[in-house]
Computed example of a mutant assay.
Amino acid sequence: MTLRASVNGIELAYESFGSPDGRPLLLIMGLGAQLIHWDDGFCSLLAEQGHHVVRYDNRDAGLSTHLHDKGVPTPGASSAYLLDDMADDAAGLMDVLGWPAAHVVGASMGGMIAQTLAFRHPERVLTLTSIMSTPGPSVAPPTEAAAAVLYVPPAADRETALAQALTNRLAIGSPGYELDRERFTRMAGLAYDRCYDPAGTTRQLAAIMASPDRTELLGGVNVPTLVIHGDADPLVPLAGGQATAAAVPGAELVVLPGMGHDLPQPLWPQIVGPITKLTANSAGKA
């Protein structure tokens, strides 16, 4: 069931998995992605490991508030908001959930938001997991082909949007794992039908580019931290994960061979396992 929370003058759509008595775990998705891109099966695996999982749509994505009145950013124009604001959204959602603090997992832009949450609201973060992310865009620039994915013109119809989604995934996905095209197309269709808003994605991208490098501030993060990254990621190359792990004192870096800029199903156990170890160890020390 999709619920809605009033946060920072906007509404966030969210869903939960597992027992409310489980360890609170907040999942933050990436650029232009929706809560459904944290696959039901992935969320269920986390719930089976004792987590109360909440996934949500960031502002300008999915069923959360879209800031249509802010228009479409143009090069050189100021951003409508920053990653700071998106981190504040996450903290506000935790208020609505009644969570004083949570284990926070972010992927790609979601990792950037999770990193920001960890130093902006340190009392709210029990553990930090940053997946296929970076302390700043200049730390690990994408390949030319991967960068092109960020600037694909909006699709005029559903068929074109699904074709673009497949082309983009083939450009940045995991070369070590065969893509289930039927399953992917089904998910892309669900995402399109749920919400298709390229302008919202552009506003999110502007927030990424306008936000300052986080390296120095990550040096003050003192919660158990896990960094997961693929060695074949063309959009946020491995250097981004290495820089994140180097910036956070005591962070653990897990490098997954053949993983690109997605979460292939065969790797779910190798992602869920380290996250569970991190959160369980932290709970045991609490």
Rank of each mutant, 00 (worst) to 15 (best):
W99A: 06
L35W: 09
D21R: 08
S64M: 07
T244I: 06
L117P: 10
D39L: 13
H121P: 03
W268P: 00
Y56F: 15
G22T: 12
V139S: 06
A47R: 04
V255W: 04
P153E: 03
G173L: 06
Y177I: 07
D88N: 14
V255H: 01
A171G: 00
A90Y: 09
D180P: 12
T116H: 07
T201I: 01
D95K: 12
I28K: 13
I275T: 00
P257K: 05
A163Q: 11
L190V: 15
V254C: 13
P137T: 01
E178Q: 15
W99R: 09
E178M: 03
A13F: 10
A247P: 04
G230N: 07
T276D: 02
A156G: 13
A146T: 00
L238R: 01
H68E: 07
H261P: 00
Y14D: 14
A13K: 03
T201K: 07
L235G: 05
G200M: 08
R194S: 13
S64T: 02
E159P: 01
T244G: 08
P20H: 00
R183Q: 15
I275K: 03
A118Y: 07
A246Y: 05
L82E: 10
R183C: 11
T116E: 05
V149S: 01
L35C: 13
G9M: 05
S282P: 00
M29A: 10
D84V: 09
T129S: 09
H37Y: 10
L83N: 12
V72D: 09
A5T: 08
I271R: 02
Y151P: 01
P266T: 04
A145Y: 06
G240M: 10
I208P: 09
R124W: 04
H103E: 01
A199L: 10
S78D: 15
D57S: 09
M187C: 09
M86K: 10
T143N: 05
A61H: 05
L46Q: 07
Q270V: 01
T116Q: 06
P24K: 11
